[in-house]
Each structure stands twice: as structure tokens, then as C-alpha cells.
Amino acid sequence: MLLNVSYNRPKIKAKIDEEVGPAFSFMERIKMKGIGSGKLFITSTSIEIHNLLILDSYLNTCGIEIRPKGIIVIFRSILETYALVIPYYKLNLYKGKAEKYSIYRDHYFIKVKANIPRIHKFMKKVSSYKAQHLDSFNRS
């Protein structure tokens, strides 16, 4: 689900929380040693996201936030902020040969550079949380 999250809209926040769960508490963030990826450089995207990114001439970057039931990929275009909300059961994460990660949800995708070791570590953390969530989901 691709959403404009530039403005404080309770309906959109509720929709995001329903899809991927509420944000982690401060203490949970400390225990997890962070929930954000930092700045990631976008190399290619699906057409819907591409059409948003070409509206300005800035460098295309994004960030990923881990939530209890999924992730949120956040990027900016012009003065608007967009979120690609991906629950774990719809998340497909691939590591390419050319030091890139591909993040898919249905027909949306974002490919990012993986030229720094911290990115590999973060993506392993995402994969680990996805496996934990899906394993506990299948047990219940």
C-alpha cells in the first residue's frame, strides 16, 4: 500500500498501524539496537513510485522502519513524504549480484544500493524479524 504520509491524518495512521502494527516503544527500540536503516540510495523502482520520484531533481533516497508486523519504506518527492507499507507476509527481499537489495510488495518494488556493511546488517535484521513473525504466525 503506497500512501502519502505528509500530513497528520488519523485515518492513514490507523491504516498503517492495522497493516504493520504500531511503532515500537522507546525501550523496545533500545533492546533491538535500532529500527531504522538510515539513508538508502534508490537505484530503480516500480512505475508508480518512479512517477513520483521524477517530479523533482533531487537524489532519490529512502529509509526503512521496522514495525512489529512489517516494514515501512519512506521516501520523499517534492515536498511530500510517501510510505510503502509492507506487512511481512507480503514482503519479498532479494539481494542482487550487483550489491543491491530489492524490496517487493505485490506490484511495487524499490531497489537500493548495498555498498556499506551496515546495510547488509540491517537487511539481515529485517529478514530475521520476518522469519520470527511468520513462524509465530504459523504456530497460532
Rank of each mutant, 00 (worst) to 15 (best):
Y89K: 14
A98H: 11
Y82D: 08
I116M: 13
K97L: 14
F122I: 03
I116K: 15
T81H: 12
V112N: 06
I71M: 06
I86P: 01
Y94T: 04
K130C: 00
I74M: 13
S127D: 03
Y89H: 15
Q132T: 05
K113E: 13
R118C: 08
F75T: 09
D106S: 13
T81A: 14
A83I: 07
I86W: 05
F122M: 05
L91D: 03
A131Y: 04
Y88H: 02
I74P: 07
P117N: 11
G96V: 05
G96D: 10
S102W: 07
I110A: 03
R67V: 00
L93W: 02
M123G: 04
R105E: 12
S77A: 15
G96A: 09
A83T: 09
L93T: 03
A131S: 08
R105K: 13
P117A: 11
M123V: 03
K130T: 00
V85T: 07
Y129P: 01
I119H: 09
S102N: 05
Y88N: 00
P117L: 12
F122V: 03
S102A: 10
Y89N: 15
Q132S: 07
Y88C: 01
Y104T: 01
Y88L: 00
M123P: 06
K90Y: 07
I103L: 01
M123W: 03
I110K: 04
N92L: 08
S128H: 09
G96T: 11
H133N: 02
K124G: 10
E99F: 09
Q132E: 08
K100V: 06
Y88W: 05
F75S: 09
R67T: 00
Y108E: 08
I72K: 15
Y82K: 08
K90R: 14
P117I: 12
K113D: 09
E80K: 15
S128N: 05
V126N: 00
L79N: 15
L84D: 02
L84Y: 06
Q132W: 06
N92R: 04
Y108G: 02
K100I: 06
Y129E: 00
R105W: 06
H133W: 03
Y94F: 11
F75K: 10
P87I: 04
K97H: 09
K130N: 02
A131E: 06
I116C: 09
S128M: 08
L91H: 02
